[in-house]
Design a protein around this nucleic acid. Sequence first.
DNA 1: GTCTATACCACGATAGAC
DNA 2: GTCTATCGTGGTATAGAC
Lengths: 183, 183
Amino acid sequence: MLETALRLFASQGFHGTSIRDVAKALELQPSALYAHFASKEHILAELVQLGHEAHHEALRKVLLSAGTEPEAQVRALIRAHTVMHATHPQLSVVVNEESHALPPELAAPAMALRNQSTALLLEVIERGVAMGRFTPPHAVATAAAISAMGVRLPYWYEPAGTLDVDTLADIHAELALRMLGGR
Amino acid sequence: MLETALRLFASQGFHGTSIRDVAKALELQPSALYAHFASKEHILAELVQLGHEAHHEALRKVLLSAGTEPEAQVRALIRAHTVMHATHPQLSVVVNEESHALPPELAAPAMALRNQSTALLLEVIERGVAMGRFTPPHAVATAAAISAMGVRLPYWYEPAGTLDVDTLADIHAELALRMLGGR
DNA sequence: GTCTATACCACGATAGAC
DNA sequence: GTCTATCGTGGTATAGAC
């Protein structure tokens, strides 16, 4: 049911999807949904939270086994970031486009996770700069540019095409290191 | 009036903004809007079209005075792309997030322009590759990554902060050339 | 947990006077 | 080109039976 809502929110947007749409896709009556969620906003909040948790967990996990070299850490983070967005494009789209439809109190936990994920990359970059391994023109703008590669994936990348996810992740890691002036 | 609709569409989304919202912001009655536009969708279509035209025109114009060197051409395209997104963040957001709320026939002209703009960058890159000046890991993915830097700007960049638009444009041009392996 | 039925409201859009 | 008034529809959500 979260999956159904996700599919609809991703293709028509949160405000463009009605409770009736979700119910119809599930072959239920609209009222049946309220046994599972307090409101339409709570469905979105759940999706946004799950998306941020999965993303943050993935980044945290790969960083643990990435060793201490800044280059390897960047490569691990960017590979995970890219794989996440390439394999869960609908969740990525909803998280990035519809989060702002939530009232602040429902979005707050997810926003906190987002800030932590952003900080994870920035800290690795700044450590690399301090070690003299990276020479980005601007740490914050470069971190944003690196992150943007993944976030924009759902808008052009076709997993069924000639470029498989693993190769794409390598390409993004390579591009990130080039931006940083690493290696 | 387009400006008012743009402001509301950017902050609440197309489906999240009602005709009544727009009318109230203009201190008009809802019915008064229909003297100017046939429907709510036509307001969005106009904004989407204007946004794509301004973007495409900007790219075309700078390319004319960028000379024949691929590096200079990339620099010119990326600078224009970045300046556009940094100085018109609301238009960029609406164009990129709400275009899909339009029926295909209303969105078609803008989509055609978008494809042309995408092709502009890709052609410069592929020419640079053919000349042996660029060595991107993957031309299409690298073009997408370069474009993504600009598209994501409205979500983090604050023109009022310490980083001015002109410096940012230079940073993005530098990052693009690094990704391409140019110079 | 799902149903039928419905309350109540906001939606986009139109009619017709001025 | 803006107004008042309103039409018809579809929105979120609830009540209460099973």
